[in-house]
Design a protein around this nucleic acid. Structure first.
Lengths: 237, 237
DNA sequence: CGAGGTCTTGAAGACGATCAACAAACGTGG
DNA sequence: CCACGTTTGTTGATCGTCTTCAAGACCTCG
C-alpha cells in the first residue's frame, strides 16, 4: 500500500483524505505461493489486486503451451486495475514468486470515479503508465537485439524499484532464465548466453536471485534506455 | 465522431446527453497530409486528437533511424487520449495516410472526469482496450512467426473496422510493406515474402491499397486469432 | 515520358532456436 | 545434516528464420 502511494506521489500530489480512502479500500493482505494463478484468462473478478510484495506477471498462452509474458509487476503495482472496467480478462496473471497481495473491490473503485475525480485521474494515469511500459516492450521485442532487450529490462526494473523506495542498483530478482525468456521472446538458452555477455561486459552481476548493476552508464548504453516513458515528472493531473 | 460513439456503444450504453457533450467537445475537423507528424516525442499537447478518417500510428525511434510502430489507429480511435494525463509524450504519432482529425481540449476531458463520471469510465475503458491491443501485439512480436504476425494484424483490423461500421472483409489499406515491417518488427523484404505466402494460401488478396479477406477461417487459424481482447461485450461500466 | 518510390526476386549471412548432454543449485525427506 | 531427486544453469553443435545486400520490374504522378 505504501509502495503504491509512494509511486503515485511521484507523478501527482495526493491529499491526505485521498490516501486514507485508498488505504481503507484495501482488504486484508493475503499470501499467494509461487506459480499460482491470481487471475485466469476469462475470469471476471469483482476486485482488483494490488501487489504488496513479490513478482507477478501477465501472460498469454498458445495452444502448444508456449507463453509470452506481457507485463512484470513489482510491489506497489496494481496488477489488474484494468479488470475494473475490462470485466472479462483477456489474459492471466501468475505469481512468479511467493507474493503478498491485497484486493480493492470494484465497487470501491466505482465510488472513486463518482466522488473522488482527482484520485480517479491518478489511478487512470497509473494504467496509462502501464501502457507506456507496454509500448517500450513492443519496441524491445520488435527491434532490439537480445542483448539490448535484457539490458533494457534491468534498466526499467532499476528505475521502477527506485520509485517504490528500494535500492535500485541491487534488487532481488528470483526469476528463472526460462521466465525471462518468456518475457523477452527468447529461448532459455539464449537468455543464458546474453546474460553471460552482460556479465562479461562487467555491467551486471546476476547470481542467487539477485541482480546488481555494476555500470549504469554501460548498461543504459547497451539498452539505449531513456526513462522518459516512466513519467517521473510530478505534475498536477 | 460517429465512429467513436459507435465503437464506445459496443462496450457500454451511452446517454444521449453524454453523446451530445462528447460531440460538442470536438473542435472543427482538420486535414493532415501523409507523413506528417501529429505529435512529436516530448510534446505536451493541450488537446487530445480523435481520428476521423485515415490511418495514424504511434512510433518509437532509434538513433540510427530504425523505428518500431507501437499502435495503428483507424477512424473512431482517440490517437492520444492518454496525453490528457500523461502530459509529455514519450512517443510520436504520425499520419500514415492523408487524415482527417478533430481535437478535444484537455480542459474538456477534465470536466468529463469531474461531472460525467460514467462517460469518464467509458473513455478510461477505451484506453484500457488500447492496452489490451498492445498486449496482443506483444504476444505477436514475442512468439508468433512472421506469417502469423501478418495474419493476426489483418484479423484485428477486420474486427476493428466492423466496430465502426465498415465492411470488415474488404478494407482500404494503403500502407507500404515497409510500414508494415515497422509494425511487425520485420524487414520489408520479409513482409513481401509472407504476404505472398498468405496470397498463395488463398486467404487474402492485398493489392492497390486494399485488403480483401478471402478465407476468414483459414486466416484466423494461421493467426491463432481470438477476438476476446477487443472487448466486444456490452456491459454497464 | 521520365523519375522516384514501391514491389519483387535471388543469394549470402547473422542471429537466435532447437536438440542434447552435463553441471550446479535447491529443496525435501530421511 | 546428509542423500537424493528435481529444477535450473551452462555449454556445444546444428538448423532455420529472418536480415541484409543487390538488382531489376512495376507503378504512380508530375
Amino acid at each position: 500500500m505504501n509502495a503504491l502511494i509512494q509511486k503515485l506521489e511521484r507523478r501527482a500530489r495526493l491529499l491526505d483524505e485521498e490516501k486514507a480512502f485508498l488505504a481503507d479500500a484495501c482488504q486484508p493482505p493475503r499470501k499467494v505461493s509461487a506459480g499460482e494463478d491470481i487471475i485466469r484468462p476469462g475470469d471476471t473478478p469483482q476486485a482488483s489486486t494490488l501487489l504488496i510484495e513479490g513478482y507477478t506477471a501477465r501472460y498469454g498462452t498458445f495452444d502448444d503451451g508456449r507463453r509470452q509474458l506481457t507485463a512484470l509487476h513489482i510491489r506497489g503495482d496494481f496488477v489488474d486495475l484494468h479488470s475494473f472496467l475490462l470485466r472479462t480478462m483477456d489474459h492471466g496473471i501468475t505469481a512468479l514468486t511467493p507474493c503478498t497481495i491485497a484486493q480493492v473491490p470494484h465497487t470501491t473503485l466505482k465510488v472513486i470515479t463518482e466522488q473522488w475525480p482527482h484520485l480517479a485521474r491518478v489511478l487512470w494515469l497509473d494504467t496509462l503508465v502501464d501502457g507506456a511500459i507496454h509500448r517500450q516492450w513492443l519496441v524491445s521485442l520488435g527491434r532490439r537485439p537480445a542483448l539490448g532487450r535484457l539490458a533494457h529490462l534491468f534498466c526499467e526494473l532499476s528505475v521502477r524499484f527506485s520509485l517504490v523506495g528500494l535500492d535500485d542498483r541491487c534488487f532481488s530478482f528470483p526469476l528463472t532464465q526460462s521466465t525471462v525468456g518468456d518475457m523477452l521472446g527468447l529461448s532459455t538458452v539464449h537468455v543464458n548466453r546474453v546474460a553471460q555477455e552482460l556479465r562479461a561486459e562487467g555491467v551486471i552481476t546476476w547470481r542467487g536471485g539477485r541482480v546488481q548493476i555494476e555500470d549504469w552508464a554501460g548498461l543504459t548504453r547497451i539498452a539505449e534506455f531513456d526513462p522518459m516513458y516512466l513519467q517521473l515528472a510530478s505534475d498536477p493531473v
